[in-house]
Design a protein around this nucleic acid. Sequence first.
RNA 1: GGCCCCGUAGCUCAGGGGAUAGAGCGACAGCCUUCUAAGCUGUUGGUCGCAGGUUCGAAUCCUGCCGGGGUCGCCA
Length: 585
Amino acid sequence: MDIFADFGERVRASIKALGWRAADGADLDLGRIVVEPPRDAAHGDLAVNAAMVLAKPMGRKPRDLAIELMGALAADPDIAETEVAGPGFLNLRLTPAAWGRFLARVLISGPAYGRGVVARGRVNVEYVSANPTGPMHVGHCRGAVVGDALANLLGFAGHEVTKEYYINDAGAQVDVLARSAFLRYREALGETIEIPEGLYPGDYLKPVGSRLAEIHGRGLIDLSEADWLPIVKPFTIDAMMAMIREDLAALNVVHDVFFSEKSLQAGPTGDRVAQAIAKLTADGLMYQGRLEPPKGQLPEDWEDREQTLFRSTAFGDDVDRPLMKSDGSYTYFASDIAYHLDKFERGFGEQIDIWGADHGGYVKRMQSAVKAISGGSARLEVLLCQLVKLFRAGEPVKMSKRSGDFVTLRDVVDEVGVDAVRFMMLFRKSDAPLDFDFQKVTEQSKDNPVFYVQYAHARTASVFAQAREALPGFDLGESGLAGAELDRLTDVGEIGLLKRIAQWPRVVEAAAEAREPHRIAFFLHDLASDLHGHWNRGKDLPQLRFVNVDDPLSSHARLAMVRAVAQVLASGLAILGVKAPDEMR
RNA sequence: GGCCCCGUAGCUCAGGGGAUAGAGCGACAGCCUUCUAAGCUGUUGGUCGCAGGUUCGAAUCCUGCCGGGGUCGCCA
């Protein structure tokens, strides 16, 4: 179904039939031969680089080889024209009949068109993993969307994907959360409270305090912290996670697994963190030692001390890393190692984590750890998402996290809608910073790529509504459309759309391979642009309109093409988690 | 100072071995008795940060600089 891969095979077969060999008589490496869409449409439908790649090993001139290959391919009935161009490109143009058969196959495949055909194995994508200390803020938004879209993309490309969320419910910050909730509890009981520096001031803890008061009455008020903490903490964490799940649902993000950090230390199989460290110790990767102080600015409270270190430098890290704090408790890194070991033991040799760019310094050590705990058989990839800068009509939006006065993810989704948020977060490479303007993303104009792409899909639906009225006799189902006289599609705009559609499988594959879901968004924008452009040509040239009562057979073929466009738009938008609407009123 | 990311049109950014480097915005000029003008067409605009290297071919890969951002033992 991928015509580029298809013709790649035909080219390789022709080369074998020609009996080409390397200058020394050895077999040629045909792996570097690619068949791809030429940048310039004037160069035809497919460009073959075989002659240039093989010229050196064969000791011959690229243009001579291209001419020879051109002769061998001339017998292919699907090829209408061939030409040798530039430094030795062989350009191919397909016949309308070949394009028609391609389109028919796309329609028969339906929503499966572009889906990976080979199984690519299991992969675990961990994203969001926001601390359960409050509602999600905009900072979490990009990672959530990128992770979710990447997981969708990998699934579409043929991986078996698990979407996972790591709940940091074991550190000191959840104790702080519990204390903050306890204050709200006292407040709910009528006390006047003052929230000291360092506790979470947000109003979102008020309902938690009220519910604690409802459940426990004054029962907790005279307990010592050691006694109320085990009650208040899990209750509050559960409330925060419920809130976060609602936020995620509003963003159209759903995880398969929520994994608790706390469960690592107090799970049914004992202390998993200790077990992970024991494993590293058994492998000779732990030792007591001292670290050099960091170069550059020395931390004020630096103190040379012997500590429990993991030999991460043996796996590519810059320095060895401590796994125990001075008070004997585990560092966050220690828990994280145990967590990634758990993922490995659950069968995930492929792990992808989505982090904020401020965690960039953490990448190497975590990758080192994954290598260490898996004996080198597991791989961790980390995608770093750069910051999102918020604007309102060109003016930066000020935020103060300390006062609790930050923009929540919910604020953004409620204001601009989930589709606009998701699409805009994906309309940029994730390692480039992103400007997000509330004004612009809600504009309903071509300046707004979300609406531009969605409108293209709506337009296809509109064309079909028109067709059902104007051409009542036609079968507009997939098989009916596939049976139309598709070789009537010969206009440059029509072939252009088919060529764009033909790229879909390779775009999916390349985007999945590169872990770059933004490529899907850009592809959809291009496809939408092709459709809008061709649609508009029907104004000057009525004979090109999709629905034309004077030429029902061509109309039928064009509707088949429009259906294929709609299919690809819908598939792509589904990967991005954006709706493909039938109307935009 | 070490490590990571970025540097492409006036602006925001795609392109990450292939031919004459693209899109949107901006600016300018057009297109509505016509399938949704929520749209389309054209014009304008570039020493791809700099210098070497690899290659038949480099914006793309490698090295070194320059500039911007992030980060740097017991925060998660």
